[in-house]
């Protein structure tokens, strides 16, 4: 069987469906890049404390039309509007007025594509020069062949469904959004890949930051405790694979339900205690009592380390019954 060289962040052609073991070997070697790995540092702490002190004392929920603060030369963030010098809320949510900007953390709403968001999409249509991708938004995204495939593809001679077919789930990046929200997604991004097997779940897009947690603490903890491979899309779609998938899903749904309560990381940590297949914490300080600090630095795979075995990782739970049957 002839295979083209596969590059990281690429995908396997569908014509390989019969050779699952081969696919599996490669899959394990080519451990999926955790999408947060590259970004999991804590937000820059320059003046963070000061900024917090300056934040508006009033932290209760606002409803549309409620006055938040005077503008005072600050930047207007999401979901607020100004009338003269006064800034009002556009949606229901929690107002944040710090020294730089005034914005709302919304409590509900649909996902509106934003450039360079990592999303999880599902192919809904295979066209001549690209794919139509459902990104759980009012707007459908398009992915041209050149953005989906690393190699040159002659679209006149190739049926591009051999790369991605209808129903395939992709982790991809929003590469372009026009004024009237015509959206393009691309596989030319860190962590972009075709998601094989596993399950997709949807949560409210506004809950995604809470599911990820500060610096990725929450999602890393779930990954570690359940040993699942989890990809979180900013559009509210989450892909999971692993033996403790059910527990991971339960945990995520709990976060979604109780996103506005405190102490959630501890609660989830207790929920997921003692599952078989949990990743052994790398750092000796990793204790359940301090889960936020305890989460070890995610293993960042270097370019050179590509293909190396990572013993502390569990084997991805391979579930043939979940593999797309065609």
């Amino acid at each position: 069987m002839m295979r083209r060289p596969i590059r990281r962040g690429g995908f396997r052609g569908r014509d390989m469906g019969g050779d699952r073991m081969g696919g599996r070997d490669r899959f394990e070697n080519e451990r999926p890049r955790e999408e947060h790995d590259e970004h999991s540092e804590q937000p820059a702490s320059d003046g963070g404390e000061a900024a917090e002190l300056h934040e508006h004392a009033h932290r209760s929920i606002v409803i549309p039309g409620e006055y938040i603060d005077d503008k005072k030369g600050r930047k207007l963030g999401d979901d607020v509007y100004e009338e003269g010098e006064k800034v009002f809320a556009k949606v229901m949510g929690i107002p944040v007025a710090n020294e730089n900007e005034i914005k709302i953390i919304p409590m509900s709403g649909v996902y509106i594509p934003n450039i360079s968001d990592n999303v999880i999409g599902v192919i809904t249509e295979v066209g001549i020069s690209g794919w139509t991708v459902d990104i759980n938004s009012p707007y459908i995204a398009f992915m041209p062949v050149a953005d989906g495939v690393d190699e040159f593809v002659d679209t006149n001679r190739t049926d591009i469904s051999r790369f991605f077919d209808v129903g395939d789930a992709l982790s991809c990046k929003i590469s372009k959004v026009t004024k009237n929200k015509t959206t393009r997604v691309s596989m030319r991004a860190m962590g972009a890949r075709k998601l094989l097997g596993g399950s997709l779940m949807k949560v409210k897009p506004v809950k995604i930051p809470r599911i990820i947690g500060k610096g990725g603490s929450m999602i890393n903890m779930i990954k570690q405790r359940t040993g699942c491979v989890i990809y979180v899309g900013k559009n509210g779609v989450i892909w999971l694979r692993g033996d403790n998938k059910a527990e991971a899903i339960e945990a995520i749904l709990t976060i979604e339900r109780e996103s506005h309560t405190s102490g959630l990381t501890d609660k989830i940590s207790r929920m997921l205690e003692g599952l078989p297949g949990a990743v052994q914490p790398a750092a000796p300080t990793a204790q359940a009592t301090a889960p936020v600090e305890a989460v070890p630095e995610p293993v960042v795979q270097d370019e050179e380390a590509e293909g190396e075995e990572h013993v502390e990782r569990p084997k991805p739970g391979w579930e043939p019954e979940n593999f797309p049957q065609r």
Binding site: S40, I61, I212, K234, S259, T261
Partner: peptide
């Protein structure tokens, strides 16, 4: 109307948690 909407979130008054989580928003 305002009271009806706000009171329904009263059992979850801890907005700090959401703000904290938002600060950690990444990707």
């Amino acid at each position: 109307q305002k009271a009806a909407i706000k009171n329904s979130f009263k059992q979850n008054p801890d907005a700090e948690a959401a703000v904290e989580a938002d600060k950690g928003e990444m990707q």
